[in-house]
Write a protein that binds this DNA or RNA. Structure first.
Ligand code: NAD
Ligand code: NAD
Lengths: 209, 209
DNA sequence: TTCACAATGTGAAAATAATAACAAAAAAAA
DNA sequence: TTTTTTTTGTTATTATTTTCACATTGTGAA
Protein backbone atom coordinates (compact mmCIF):
# COMPACT_ATOMS: atom_id res chain seq x y z
CA UNK A 1 0.00 0.00 0.00
CA UNK A 2 1.85 3.02 -1.22
CA UNK A 3 -0.44 5.95 -0.70
CA UNK A 4 -4.01 6.28 0.46
CA UNK A 5 -6.22 9.04 -0.94
CA UNK A 6 -7.21 11.75 1.53
CA UNK A 7 -10.83 10.87 1.10
CA UNK A 8 -10.16 7.25 1.83
CA UNK A 9 -8.57 8.16 5.14
CA UNK A 10 -11.68 10.07 6.15
CA UNK A 11 -13.92 7.25 5.12
CA UNK A 12 -11.89 4.63 6.93
CA UNK A 13 -12.44 6.55 10.14
CA UNK A 14 -16.15 6.64 9.39
CA UNK A 15 -16.32 2.98 8.46
CA UNK A 16 -14.76 2.13 11.75
CA UNK A 17 -17.34 4.12 13.67
CA UNK A 18 -20.11 2.29 11.85
CA UNK A 19 -18.38 -1.04 12.38
CA UNK A 20 -18.00 -0.44 16.10
CA UNK A 21 -21.73 0.07 16.36
CA UNK A 22 -22.31 -3.18 14.48
CA UNK A 23 -19.92 -5.01 16.74
CA UNK A 24 -21.81 -3.67 19.73
CA UNK A 25 -25.01 -5.05 18.27
CA UNK A 26 -23.39 -8.43 17.93
CA UNK A 27 -23.18 -8.30 14.15
CA UNK A 28 -20.19 -10.36 13.00
CA UNK A 29 -20.23 -9.69 9.26
CA UNK A 30 -21.23 -6.79 7.07
CA UNK A 31 -21.69 -6.34 3.33
CA UNK A 32 -20.16 -3.51 1.37
CA UNK A 33 -23.60 -2.19 0.52
CA UNK A 34 -24.54 -2.07 4.18
CA UNK A 35 -21.52 0.05 5.02
CA UNK A 36 -22.24 2.14 1.97
CA UNK A 37 -25.80 2.84 3.01
CA UNK A 38 -24.75 4.05 6.44
CA UNK A 39 -22.26 6.49 4.92
CA UNK A 40 -24.43 7.62 2.01
CA UNK A 41 -21.95 6.38 -0.56
CA UNK A 42 -21.86 3.51 -3.05
CA UNK A 43 -20.86 -0.07 -2.35
CA UNK A 44 -18.18 0.08 -5.03
CA UNK A 45 -16.58 2.95 -3.22
CA UNK A 46 -16.43 0.92 -0.04
CA UNK A 47 -14.97 -2.09 -1.80
CA UNK A 48 -12.41 0.05 -3.53
CA UNK A 49 -11.31 1.62 -0.25
CA UNK A 50 -10.98 -1.80 1.31
CA UNK A 51 -9.08 -2.99 -1.73
CA UNK A 52 -6.68 -0.10 -1.24
CA UNK A 53 -5.94 -1.16 2.31
CA UNK A 54 -5.63 -4.74 1.14
CA UNK A 55 -8.53 -6.20 3.03
CA UNK A 56 -10.36 -9.14 1.55
CA UNK A 57 -13.83 -10.15 2.57
CA UNK A 58 -15.58 -13.44 2.23
CA UNK A 59 -17.65 -13.96 -0.85
CA UNK A 60 -21.36 -13.86 -0.01
CA UNK A 61 -20.64 -13.31 3.67
CA UNK A 62 -19.18 -9.84 3.42
CA UNK A 63 -16.50 -8.46 5.71
CA UNK A 64 -15.59 -9.64 9.16
CA UNK A 65 -16.45 -6.73 11.39
CA UNK A 66 -13.86 -7.42 14.04
CA UNK A 67 -11.03 -8.03 11.61
CA UNK A 68 -11.83 -4.92 9.65
CA UNK A 69 -11.94 -2.72 12.73
CA UNK A 70 -8.58 -4.20 13.69
CA UNK A 71 -7.05 -3.52 10.30
CA UNK A 72 -8.35 0.02 10.04
CA UNK A 73 -6.84 0.63 13.45
CA UNK A 74 -3.49 -0.66 12.26
CA UNK A 75 -3.58 1.75 9.39
CA UNK A 76 -4.89 4.95 10.85
CA UNK A 77 -3.94 4.71 14.51
CA UNK A 78 -0.55 5.24 16.03
CA UNK A 79 0.88 2.34 17.91
CA UNK A 80 0.81 3.97 21.35
CA UNK A 81 -1.98 6.44 20.83
CA UNK A 82 -1.63 10.14 20.36
CA UNK A 83 -1.95 12.75 23.07
CA UNK A 84 -4.15 15.72 22.33
CA UNK A 85 -4.72 19.10 23.95
CA UNK A 86 -7.55 21.60 23.65
CA UNK A 87 -6.65 25.25 23.72
CA UNK A 88 -9.45 27.56 24.83
CA UNK A 89 -11.92 26.22 27.38
CA UNK A 90 -14.90 28.30 26.25
CA UNK A 91 -18.22 27.00 25.00
CA UNK A 92 -16.84 25.02 22.17
CA UNK A 93 -13.79 23.76 24.04
CA UNK A 94 -15.94 22.53 26.91
CA UNK A 95 -18.37 20.88 24.51
CA UNK A 96 -15.51 19.05 22.84
CA UNK A 97 -13.76 17.92 25.98
CA UNK A 98 -17.04 16.66 27.32
CA UNK A 99 -17.69 14.78 24.16
CA UNK A 100 -14.29 13.17 23.78
CA UNK A 101 -13.66 12.42 27.43
CA UNK A 102 -16.20 9.63 27.51
CA UNK A 103 -14.81 7.82 24.51
CA UNK A 104 -12.05 5.31 25.01
CA UNK A 105 -9.83 5.79 22.05
CA UNK A 106 -6.25 5.89 20.86
CA UNK A 107 -6.69 9.65 20.88
CA UNK A 108 -6.27 10.82 24.43
CA UNK A 109 -7.06 14.35 25.50
CA UNK A 110 -4.56 14.89 28.28
CA UNK A 111 -4.60 18.64 28.83
CA UNK A 112 -6.43 21.86 28.16
CA UNK A 113 -5.20 25.44 28.24
CA UNK A 114 -6.81 28.79 28.91
CA UNK A 115 -5.92 32.34 29.76
CA UNK A 116 -8.71 32.85 32.27
CA UNK A 117 -7.54 32.39 35.89
CA UNK A 118 -10.96 31.06 36.88
CA UNK A 119 -10.49 28.09 34.62
CA UNK A 120 -6.82 27.40 35.23
CA UNK A 121 -6.21 24.71 37.82
CA UNK A 122 -9.66 23.18 37.50
CA UNK A 123 -10.55 19.96 35.81
CA UNK A 124 -13.17 19.58 33.12
CA UNK A 125 -14.34 16.03 32.53
CA UNK A 126 -11.26 14.94 34.40
CA UNK A 127 -8.85 16.82 32.17
CA UNK A 128 -6.67 19.45 33.90
CA UNK A 129 -6.68 23.01 32.62
CA UNK A 130 -3.31 24.76 32.55
CA UNK A 131 -2.31 28.33 31.99
CA UNK A 132 -1.42 29.19 28.44
CA UNK A 133 1.97 30.29 29.82
CA UNK A 134 2.76 26.71 30.73
CA UNK A 135 1.76 25.42 27.37
CA UNK A 136 5.17 24.75 25.94
CA UNK A 137 6.33 22.99 29.09
CA UNK A 138 3.22 20.84 29.40
CA UNK A 139 3.13 19.93 25.72
CA UNK A 140 6.68 18.66 25.91
CA UNK A 141 6.28 16.92 29.24
CA UNK A 142 3.10 15.15 28.29
CA UNK A 143 4.26 14.42 24.77
CA UNK A 144 1.25 16.09 23.21
CA UNK A 145 1.23 15.79 19.44
CA UNK A 146 -2.04 17.36 18.37
CA UNK A 147 -3.72 20.60 19.41
CA UNK A 148 -7.37 21.52 18.95
CA UNK A 149 -7.78 25.28 18.78
CA UNK A 150 -10.97 26.77 20.23
CA UNK A 151 -9.71 30.17 21.31
CA UNK A 152 -11.35 33.43 20.25
CA UNK A 153 -10.45 34.12 16.65
CA UNK A 154 -8.32 37.15 17.50
CA UNK A 155 -5.95 34.84 19.33
CA UNK A 156 -5.87 32.22 16.63
CA UNK A 157 -2.59 33.19 15.00
CA UNK A 158 -0.62 33.64 18.17
CA UNK A 159 -1.96 30.39 19.58
CA UNK A 160 -0.94 28.53 16.45
CA UNK A 161 2.53 30.07 16.68
CA UNK A 162 2.87 29.00 20.28
CA UNK A 163 1.74 25.49 19.46
CA UNK A 164 4.24 25.23 16.66
CA UNK A 165 6.96 26.57 18.88
CA UNK A 166 6.10 24.00 21.52
CA UNK A 167 6.71 21.29 18.93
CA UNK A 168 3.16 20.24 18.16
CA UNK A 169 2.79 18.02 15.06
CA UNK A 170 -0.81 18.61 14.04
CA UNK A 171 -3.43 21.30 14.56
CA UNK A 172 -7.18 21.13 14.23
CA UNK A 173 -8.39 24.71 14.00
CA UNK A 174 -12.04 25.38 14.86
CA UNK A 175 -11.48 29.09 14.80
CA UNK A 176 -12.90 30.81 11.72
CA UNK A 177 -9.56 32.52 11.28
CA UNK A 178 -7.12 30.68 8.99
CA UNK A 179 -3.66 30.33 10.52
CA UNK A 180 -0.19 29.70 9.12
CA UNK A 181 2.05 26.87 10.19
CA UNK A 182 5.27 25.44 8.81
CA UNK A 183 5.00 22.70 6.27
CA UNK A 184 5.87 19.91 8.63
CA UNK A 185 2.90 20.63 10.88
CA UNK A 186 -0.31 19.13 9.58
CA UNK A 187 -3.15 21.62 9.66
CA UNK A 188 -6.85 20.94 9.34
CA UNK A 189 -9.28 23.83 9.46
CA UNK A 190 -12.98 23.50 9.88
CA UNK A 191 -15.44 26.27 9.74
CA UNK A 192 -19.03 25.73 10.75
CA UNK A 193 -20.23 28.73 8.80
CA UNK A 194 -18.91 27.21 5.59
CA UNK A 195 -20.89 24.06 6.26
CA UNK A 196 -24.02 26.00 7.03
CA UNK A 197 -23.68 28.25 4.02
CA UNK A 198 -23.15 25.21 1.85
CA UNK A 199 -26.36 23.63 3.08
CA UNK A 200 -28.15 26.93 2.54
CA UNK A 201 -26.80 27.16 -0.99
CA UNK A 202 -28.06 23.76 -2.02
CA UNK A 203 -31.41 24.43 -0.39
CA UNK A 204 -31.65 27.61 -2.42
CA UNK A 205 -30.59 25.72 -5.58
CA UNK A 206 -33.29 23.16 -5.17
CA UNK A 207 -35.90 25.85 -4.62
CA UNK A 208 -35.01 27.92 -7.64
CA UNK A 209 -34.42 25.14 -10.09
CA UNK B 1 -22.82 29.76 -15.14
CA UNK B 2 -24.22 26.29 -15.40
CA UNK B 3 -22.87 24.36 -12.46
CA UNK B 4 -20.41 25.18 -9.72
CA UNK B 5 -18.21 22.44 -8.28
CA UNK B 6 -18.92 21.51 -4.67
CA UNK B 7 -15.48 22.59 -3.66
CA UNK B 8 -15.91 25.97 -5.29
CA UNK B 9 -19.05 26.59 -3.25
CA UNK B 10 -17.14 25.91 -0.06
CA UNK B 11 -14.31 28.14 -1.11
CA UNK B 12 -16.60 30.99 -2.11
CA UNK B 13 -17.96 31.02 1.42
CA UNK B 14 -14.42 31.10 2.74
CA UNK B 15 -13.30 33.80 0.35
CA UNK B 16 -16.15 35.93 1.52
CA UNK B 17 -15.16 35.56 5.13
CA UNK B 18 -11.62 36.63 4.29
CA UNK B 19 -12.92 39.52 2.18
CA UNK B 20 -15.14 40.76 4.96
CA UNK B 21 -12.13 40.99 7.22
CA UNK B 22 -10.27 42.95 4.55
CA UNK B 23 -13.20 45.28 4.11
CA UNK B 24 -13.21 45.88 7.85
CA UNK B 25 -9.56 46.80 7.67
CA UNK B 26 -10.34 49.30 4.96
CA UNK B 27 -8.68 47.30 2.20
CA UNK B 28 -10.42 48.07 -1.10
CA UNK B 29 -8.64 45.68 -3.44
CA UNK B 30 -7.09 42.25 -3.09
CA UNK B 31 -4.93 40.09 -5.34
CA UNK B 32 -5.67 36.48 -6.08
CA UNK B 33 -2.47 35.43 -4.38
CA UNK B 34 -3.48 37.25 -1.21
CA UNK B 35 -6.77 35.41 -1.03
CA UNK B 36 -4.94 32.21 -1.84
CA UNK B 37 -2.48 32.65 0.98
CA UNK B 38 -5.22 33.13 3.54
CA UNK B 39 -6.96 29.94 2.44
CA UNK B 40 -3.81 27.84 1.96
CA UNK B 41 -4.49 27.30 -1.71
CA UNK B 42 -2.96 28.52 -4.95
CA UNK B 43 -3.68 31.78 -6.72
CA UNK B 44 -4.70 29.92 -9.86
CA UNK B 45 -7.35 28.13 -7.93
CA UNK B 46 -8.76 31.41 -6.72
CA UNK B 47 -8.76 32.91 -10.20
CA UNK B 48 -10.41 29.84 -11.61
CA UNK B 49 -13.17 29.94 -9.00
CA UNK B 50 -13.77 33.60 -9.76
CA UNK B 51 -13.77 32.85 -13.44
CA UNK B 52 -16.46 30.25 -12.82
CA UNK B 53 -18.69 32.81 -11.16
CA UNK B 54 -17.91 35.26 -13.93
CA UNK B 55 -16.15 37.89 -11.88
CA UNK B 56 -13.50 39.96 -13.49
CA UNK B 57 -10.87 41.86 -11.57
CA UNK B 58 -8.76 44.76 -12.62
CA UNK B 59 -5.43 43.98 -14.12
CA UNK B 60 -2.64 44.83 -11.71
CA UNK B 61 -5.09 46.10 -9.11
CA UNK B 62 -6.70 42.80 -8.23
CA UNK B 63 -10.30 42.34 -7.21
CA UNK B 64 -12.61 44.92 -5.75
CA UNK B 65 -13.34 43.63 -2.27
CA UNK B 66 -16.80 45.13 -1.96
CA UNK B 67 -17.95 44.03 -5.39
CA UNK B 68 -16.71 40.53 -4.89
CA UNK B 69 -18.43 40.18 -1.53
CA UNK B 70 -21.58 41.41 -3.20
CA UNK B 71 -21.31 38.93 -6.06
CA UNK B 72 -20.54 35.96 -3.87
CA UNK B 73 -23.60 36.91 -1.86
CA UNK B 74 -25.73 36.93 -4.99
CA UNK B 75 -24.55 33.46 -5.82
CA UNK B 76 -24.59 31.63 -2.54
CA UNK B 77 -27.16 33.53 -0.51
CA UNK B 78 -30.90 33.37 -0.82
CA UNK B 79 -32.63 36.58 -1.63
CA UNK B 80 -34.47 36.94 1.67
CA UNK B 81 -32.16 34.99 3.90
CA UNK B 82 -32.75 31.52 5.25
CA UNK B 83 -34.16 30.71 8.64
CA UNK B 84 -32.34 28.13 10.68
CA UNK B 85 -33.13 26.14 13.81
CA UNK B 86 -30.90 24.27 16.22
CA UNK B 87 -32.23 21.05 17.66
CA UNK B 88 -30.69 20.05 21.00
CA UNK B 89 -29.62 22.84 23.35
CA UNK B 90 -26.80 20.91 25.03
CA UNK B 91 -23.14 21.87 25.11
CA UNK B 92 -22.68 21.95 21.40
CA UNK B 93 -26.03 23.53 20.64
CA UNK B 94 -25.38 26.32 23.13
CA UNK B 95 -21.90 26.88 21.75
CA UNK B 96 -23.28 27.18 18.26
CA UNK B 97 -26.16 29.48 19.08
CA UNK B 98 -23.80 31.68 21.00
CA UNK B 99 -21.44 31.79 18.11
CA UNK B 100 -23.95 32.48 15.38
CA UNK B 101 -26.17 34.86 17.30
CA UNK B 102 -23.62 37.63 17.20
CA UNK B 103 -23.13 37.48 13.48
CA UNK B 104 -25.43 39.45 11.26
CA UNK B 105 -25.94 37.25 8.27
CA UNK B 106 -28.41 36.05 5.71
CA UNK B 107 -28.59 32.93 7.84
CA UNK B 108 -30.84 33.67 10.77
CA UNK B 109 -31.18 31.31 13.68
CA UNK B 110 -34.76 31.89 14.71
CA UNK B 111 -35.55 28.98 17.01
CA UNK B 112 -34.10 26.17 19.04
CA UNK B 113 -35.71 22.98 20.30
CA UNK B 114 -35.13 20.68 23.23
CA UNK B 115 -36.82 17.95 25.20
CA UNK B 116 -35.71 19.17 28.61
CA UNK B 117 -38.43 21.23 30.39
CA UNK B 118 -35.77 23.35 32.09
CA UNK B 119 -34.66 24.67 28.74
CA UNK B 120 -38.01 25.06 27.06
CA UNK B 121 -39.42 28.56 27.27
CA UNK B 122 -36.07 30.18 27.95
CA UNK B 123 -34.02 32.22 25.57
CA UNK B 124 -30.40 31.55 24.71
CA UNK B 125 -28.58 34.44 23.11
CA UNK B 126 -31.97 35.90 22.37
CA UNK B 127 -33.25 32.81 20.55
CA UNK B 128 -36.33 31.15 22.04
CA UNK B 129 -36.23 27.45 22.91
CA UNK B 130 -39.34 25.45 22.11
CA UNK B 131 -40.44 21.97 23.03
CA UNK B 132 -39.61 19.34 20.49
CA UNK B 133 -43.34 18.61 20.36
CA UNK B 134 -43.98 21.99 18.85
CA UNK B 135 -41.28 21.57 16.26
CA UNK B 136 -43.45 20.92 13.25
CA UNK B 137 -45.71 23.85 14.04
CA UNK B 138 -42.87 26.29 14.71
CA UNK B 139 -40.88 25.22 11.66
CA UNK B 140 -43.84 25.87 9.43
CA UNK B 141 -44.86 29.09 11.12
CA UNK B 142 -41.40 30.58 11.10
CA UNK B 143 -40.59 29.28 7.65
CA UNK B 144 -37.48 27.49 8.85
CA UNK B 145 -35.58 25.87 6.02
CA UNK B 146 -32.46 24.44 7.64
CA UNK B 147 -31.97 22.44 10.83
CA UNK B 148 -28.74 21.94 12.75
CA UNK B 149 -28.84 18.71 14.72
CA UNK B 150 -27.02 18.63 18.06
CA UNK B 151 -29.12 16.09 19.91
CA UNK B 152 -27.65 13.01 21.61
CA UNK B 153 -26.78 10.49 18.96
CA UNK B 154 -29.46 8.03 20.03
CA UNK B 155 -32.06 10.58 19.04
CA UNK B 156 -30.44 11.45 15.74
CA UNK B 157 -32.62 9.32 13.46
CA UNK B 158 -35.91 10.28 15.00
CA UNK B 159 -34.99 13.94 15.03
CA UNK B 160 -34.08 13.80 11.35
CA UNK B 161 -37.39 12.11 10.60
CA UNK B 162 -39.29 14.79 12.46
CA UNK B 163 -37.42 17.53 10.65
CA UNK B 164 -38.17 15.99 7.30
CA UNK B 165 -41.78 15.57 8.23
CA UNK B 166 -41.95 19.22 9.24
CA UNK B 167 -40.85 20.12 5.76
CA UNK B 168 -37.25 21.14 6.40
CA UNK B 169 -35.11 21.52 3.28
CA UNK B 170 -31.59 21.04 4.58
CA UNK B 171 -29.97 19.36 7.59
CA UNK B 172 -26.54 19.88 9.09
CA UNK B 173 -25.91 16.88 11.31
CA UNK B 174 -23.28 17.26 14.04
CA UNK B 175 -24.26 14.00 15.60
CA UNK B 176 -21.77 11.19 14.94
CA UNK B 177 -24.69 9.01 13.87
CA UNK B 178 -25.42 9.10 10.12
CA UNK B 179 -29.09 9.66 9.34
CA UNK B 180 -31.31 9.00 6.34
CA UNK B 181 -33.36 11.63 4.60
CA UNK B 182 -35.25 11.71 1.32
CA UNK B 183 -33.38 12.81 -1.74
CA UNK B 184 -34.88 16.26 -1.89
CA UNK B 185 -33.53 17.18 1.54
CA UNK B 186 -29.92 18.27 1.42
CA UNK B 187 -27.87 16.59 4.10
CA UNK B 188 -24.43 17.53 5.35
CA UNK B 189 -22.81 15.47 8.06
CA UNK B 190 -19.78 16.48 10.01
CA UNK B 191 -17.99 14.41 12.51
CA UNK B 192 -15.29 15.91 14.70
CA UNK B 193 -13.76 12.53 15.39
CA UNK B 194 -13.11 12.03 11.69
CA UNK B 195 -11.26 15.34 11.55
CA UNK B 196 -9.23 14.52 14.61
CA UNK B 197 -8.39 11.03 13.40
CA UNK B 198 -7.35 12.46 10.08
CA UNK B 199 -4.95 14.88 11.73
CA UNK B 200 -3.62 12.06 13.88
CA UNK B 201 -3.09 9.89 10.82
CA UNK B 202 -1.02 12.47 9.00
CA UNK B 203 0.98 13.18 12.13
CA UNK B 204 1.73 9.49 12.38
CA UNK B 205 2.63 9.36 8.69
CA UNK B 206 5.12 12.14 9.02
CA UNK B 207 6.71 10.48 12.02
CA UNK B 208 7.14 7.07 10.49
CA UNK B 209 8.29 8.17 7.07
C1' DT C 1 -26.01 -31.69 -10.91
C1' DT C 2 -27.16 -27.37 -12.99
C1' DC C 3 -28.83 -22.89 -12.65
C1' DA C 4 -29.70 -18.51 -10.73
C1' DC C 5 -28.29 -15.41 -7.44
C1' DA C 6 -25.64 -12.46 -4.59
C1' DA C 7 -21.65 -10.93 -3.35
C1' DT C 8 -16.56 -9.57 -3.88
C1' DG C 9 -12.51 -7.64 -6.51
C1' DT C 10 -10.65 -4.97 -10.08
C1' DG C 11 -9.24 -2.97 -14.81
C1' DA C 12 -11.00 0.62 -17.59
C1' DA C 13 -13.63 4.72 -18.23
C1' DA C 14 -15.63 8.84 -16.70
C1' DA C 15 -16.10 12.65 -13.82
C1' DT C 16 -14.25 15.95 -10.93
C1' DA C 17 -10.64 18.90 -9.29
C1' DA C 18 -6.15 21.05 -9.43
C1' DT C 19 -2.13 22.76 -11.81
C1' DA C 20 0.66 24.39 -15.48
C1' DA C 21 1.44 27.38 -19.09
C1' DC C 22 0.98 31.33 -21.30
C1' DA C 23 -1.32 35.37 -23.77
C1' DA C 24 -2.82 39.97 -22.72
C1' DA C 25 -2.59 44.24 -20.75
C1' DA C 26 -1.73 47.82 -17.44
C1' DA C 27 1.73 49.99 -14.70
C1' DA C 28 6.31 50.98 -13.55
C1' DA C 29 10.99 51.43 -14.73
C1' DA C 30 14.57 52.46 -17.81
C1' DT D 1 9.53 55.98 -25.72
C1' DT D 2 10.69 51.12 -24.95
C1' DT D 3 11.27 47.46 -21.83
C1' DT D 4 10.27 44.96 -17.79
C1' DT D 5 7.28 43.54 -14.32
C1' DT D 6 3.12 42.11 -12.45
C1' DT D 7 -1.18 40.37 -12.46
C1' DT D 8 -5.48 38.67 -14.62
C1' DG D 9 -8.03 35.21 -17.50
C1' DT D 10 -8.19 31.06 -19.84
C1' DT D 11 -6.90 26.90 -22.40
C1' DA D 12 -4.64 22.70 -22.02
C1' DT D 13 -2.84 19.24 -19.14
C1' DT D 14 -2.40 16.38 -15.30
C1' DA D 15 -3.86 14.28 -11.11
C1' DT D 16 -7.24 12.45 -8.20
C1' DT D 17 -11.50 10.33 -7.19
C1' DT D 18 -15.55 7.93 -8.47
C1' DT D 19 -18.23 4.94 -11.17
C1' DC D 20 -18.98 1.38 -14.59
C1' DA D 21 -18.78 -3.06 -16.15
C1' DC D 22 -17.87 -7.44 -15.59
C1' DA D 23 -15.18 -11.65 -14.31
C1' DT D 24 -15.22 -14.62 -10.40
C1' DT D 25 -16.99 -17.56 -7.00
C1' DG D 26 -19.48 -19.54 -3.07
C1' DT D 27 -24.42 -20.77 -1.88
C1' DG D 28 -28.77 -22.43 -2.19
C1' DA D 29 -32.68 -23.83 -5.02
C1' DA D 30 -34.56 -26.54 -8.70
N1 NAD E 1 -19.09 28.22 19.68
C1 NAD E 1 -19.19 27.65 18.50
O1 NAD E 1 -20.10 26.90 18.19
C2 NAD E 1 -18.21 27.91 17.52
C3 NAD E 1 -18.44 27.45 16.29
C4 NAD E 1 -17.49 27.65 15.35
C5 NAD E 1 -16.37 28.30 15.67
N2 NAD E 1 -16.17 28.77 16.87
C6 NAD E 1 -14.94 29.42 17.18
O2 NAD E 1 -14.31 28.73 18.20
C7 NAD E 1 -13.67 29.64 19.04
C8 NAD E 1 -14.17 29.49 20.44
O3 NAD E 1 -15.57 29.66 20.49
P1 NAD E 1 -16.30 29.69 21.88
O4 NAD E 1 -17.73 29.87 21.59
O5 NAD E 1 -15.89 28.53 22.67
O6 NAD E 1 -15.69 31.04 22.50
P2 NAD E 1 -15.56 31.43 24.04
O7 NAD E 1 -15.33 32.88 24.08
O8 NAD E 1 -16.68 30.82 24.80
O9 NAD E 1 -14.25 30.68 24.53
C9 NAD E 1 -12.96 31.12 24.31
C10 NAD E 1 -12.07 30.61 25.44
O10 NAD E 1 -10.71 30.84 25.10
C11 NAD E 1 -10.06 31.42 26.23
N3 NAD E 1 -8.98 32.25 25.74
C12 NAD E 1 -9.00 33.54 25.38
N4 NAD E 1 -7.80 33.94 24.96
C13 NAD E 1 -6.99 32.88 25.07
C14 NAD E 1 -5.63 32.67 24.80
N5 NAD E 1 -4.87 33.62 24.31
N6 NAD E 1 -5.12 31.47 25.03
C15 NAD E 1 -5.90 30.49 25.53
N7 NAD E 1 -7.18 30.62 25.80
C16 NAD E 1 -7.73 31.81 25.58
C17 NAD E 1 -11.13 32.22 26.93
O11 NAD E 1 -10.78 32.38 28.30
C18 NAD E 1 -12.33 31.31 26.75
O12 NAD E 1 -12.38 30.35 27.78
C19 NAD E 1 -13.93 31.01 18.47
O13 NAD E 1 -12.86 31.37 17.64
C20 NAD E 1 -15.15 30.82 17.65
O14 NAD E 1 -15.20 31.71 16.59
C21 NAD E 1 -17.06 28.57 17.84
N1 NAD F 1 -19.98 18.29 22.35
C1 NAD F 1 -19.24 18.19 21.28
O1 NAD F 1 -18.20 18.80 21.13
C2 NAD F 1 -19.63 17.34 20.22
C3 NAD F 1 -18.76 17.16 19.21
C4 NAD F 1 -19.15 16.38 18.18
C5 NAD F 1 -20.37 15.84 18.18
N2 NAD F 1 -21.18 16.02 19.19
C6 NAD F 1 -22.49 15.43 19.15
O2 NAD F 1 -23.45 16.44 19.21
C7 NAD F 1 -24.53 15.98 19.98
C8 NAD F 1 -24.75 16.90 21.15
O3 NAD F 1 -23.60 16.96 21.95
P1 NAD F 1 -23.63 17.72 23.31
O4 NAD F 1 -22.31 17.63 23.89
O5 NAD F 1 -24.22 19.05 23.10
O6 NAD F 1 -24.65 16.82 24.12
P2 NAD F 1 -25.58 17.23 25.36
O7 NAD F 1 -26.02 15.99 26.02
O8 NAD F 1 -24.91 18.28 26.13
O9 NAD F 1 -26.85 17.93 24.71
C9 NAD F 1 -27.92 17.26 24.12
C10 NAD F 1 -29.17 18.14 24.24
O10 NAD F 1 -30.21 17.57 23.47
C11 NAD F 1 -31.39 17.56 24.25
N3 NAD F 1 -32.21 16.45 23.78
C12 NAD F 1 -32.19 15.16 24.17
N4 NAD F 1 -33.09 14.45 23.48
C13 NAD F 1 -33.69 15.30 22.64
C14 NAD F 1 -34.69 15.15 21.69
N5 NAD F 1 -35.27 13.97 21.44
N6 NAD F 1 -35.09 16.23 20.99
C15 NAD F 1 -34.51 17.42 21.23
N7 NAD F 1 -33.55 17.63 22.14
C16 NAD F 1 -33.15 16.57 22.83
C17 NAD F 1 -30.93 17.39 25.66
O11 NAD F 1 -31.92 17.86 26.56
C18 NAD F 1 -29.68 18.24 25.66
O12 NAD F 1 -29.99 19.58 25.94
C19 NAD F 1 -24.22 14.56 20.39
O13 NAD F 1 -24.79 13.68 19.46
C20 NAD F 1 -22.74 14.51 20.29
O14 NAD F 1 -22.31 13.21 20.00
C21 NAD F 1 -20.86 16.77 20.21
Amino acid sequence: MKHLPHKTIERLSQYRRALLICLNNGQMHIYSHEIAKIQHITAVQVRRDLMLIGYTGTLRKGYNVKELIELIGQIIDSLDGINVAIIGMGNLGRALINYFAGKRSHLKIVASFDINPDKIGNKMSGIPCFSIDEMEKVIREKNIKVGIMTVPEDFASQTADKLVHAGIKGILNYTPKPVYVPNEVYLEEYDMITSLEKVAFYVKMQETE
